[in-house]
Simulated assay, not measured.
Amino acid sequence: MFTPAFLALSLASFVTYFSVQLLTASLPLYAVRLGASDAVLGWMAGVIAIASLVARPWVGQWLDRGGSVPALMLGILAFALSAAGYWLAASVVILLVFRSLTGLGVALFTTAGQTLTVNLTPQERRGEALSLYAVWHPVALIVGPPVGVAIAGAMGYPALFAVCIAIGLLGLSLTWPLRTLRSDSTGRRPLLFNRTVWMPGIWMAFLMVPYGANIGLLAVHAARRGLANPGMAFTAMAVGLLAILLSVGRRSDRAARTAIVVPGMLIAAFGMWATAALHGWGLLVGGALSGIGLGLAQPALLALGVDLVPPEDRGSAMATLGMFLEIGIWLGAVGGGLIARSFGTGMMFGLAGVAPAAGAILAVAFTRRSQP
């Protein structure tokens, strides 16, 4: 499984994710300086979700035609260009415009990376491979947000955006060893929406509501609740995510996928409720639980979706699951922003926990109904 291509993909992914995560906690604070309200902060994550949602079906078709590596590279370039746009933005409106470019990068980069991971590994190690590939996201999340806040505080936001651009271009250069990879194509028209994976997709949407709430408003919530560096809440989330990804990947290949998905959703729910209730350093508990829940459930859901389709439909399957993922993020970010504006961020995080809890109940009910 640990082929040179997989290792090159992993290294490029870590560097790229790090360039993106530098802005996770600092960009909402920058937007507040430009006059953004809680609702607008939710839209900053929501715009990414909408742009990615719209782009993913066509990205999936491109991948099933053999375009995984070009899509990966174009996604990294979109991240770098969006950071340049943030540098030039003088208003919240312009900031939101360039967030849509980030959303295009998400659709290209994540869908291509996951599809390449599946194509590079045997079926019996699919869950493990997706978990190990996903490890690079929390590794970047551990250091990225607090480092981004520190850079912005010490040298200003223009310096932070310049660093993001430089690191993003480094990630692009690291994809060079992947240029010789070729994906098989059947010659038929690829699917735009893969209906086979609709049920795991619905579960994915429920799971990602807390993530959207975190990306949109956790930094501001943590600052208001007395956490000196709001980026530390994301670091706690990443530590929980990393720990679980390193420990349970093979287990999802040996047990039923839903046996991993359901506990993950429930833990994600408790993470939201802890974030709603606690203050100061206690917010790290909520962040860690959110990461553990996400790390358990998301790779298992992706592996479940790929299990259901033939190899030539993997791109469309990943893209369709990604569409549901973006719907969940959009609901958590935009809906969360609207709720926070009226009732406060504490109430919003409490309500966000209801979504994965409901998803767990739905998954259990569907699994029992499907059993003979």
Rank of each mutant, 00 (worst) to 15 (best):
E124H: 13
G286W: 07
F270N: 09
V163E: 09
F2E: 10
R225S: 11
A268P: 01
L304A: 07
L170C: 10
V92H: 06
G127S: 09
G42R: 01
T24L: 04
N194T: 03
T117A: 06
G344A: 04
A71N: 07
D64I: 02
P356G: 03
G105W: 12
G337C: 05
A360C: 00
S82P: 02
P146K: 08
A159G: 09
M232Y: 15
L301N: 06
G216M: 02
S13M: 10
E312D: 10
R195G: 12
I339V: 15
I165P: 08
V163Y: 14
F343Q: 14
L296R: 07
V69M: 02
W176I: 11
G280E: 05
I76G: 11
A297H: 04
A255K: 10
R257K: 05
A269P: 03
L169W: 15
T186H: 14
L132Q: 07
Q371L: 14
L81V: 08
L81I: 06
G216C: 00
M318I: 03
P28W: 02
A71K: 13
A150R: 14
E326I: 04
G322M: 09
R250N: 09
A36G: 01
R99N: 03
T3G: 01
G271D: 03
L192Q: 07
Y86W: 09
L191Q: 12
G286I: 01
A25L: 00
A107M: 04
A274M: 09
D253T: 00
R369E: 05
P146R: 08
F193N: 07
L174I: 02
P230W: 14
R195Q: 13
A152G: 06
L338K: 14
A25C: 02
V20Y: 15
S13R: 14
G249Y: 12
L283R: 08
P190H: 13
L11T: 01
R56F: 06
S26V: 01
L81K: 09
G295S: 03
S173Y: 15
A352I: 07
I260S: 10
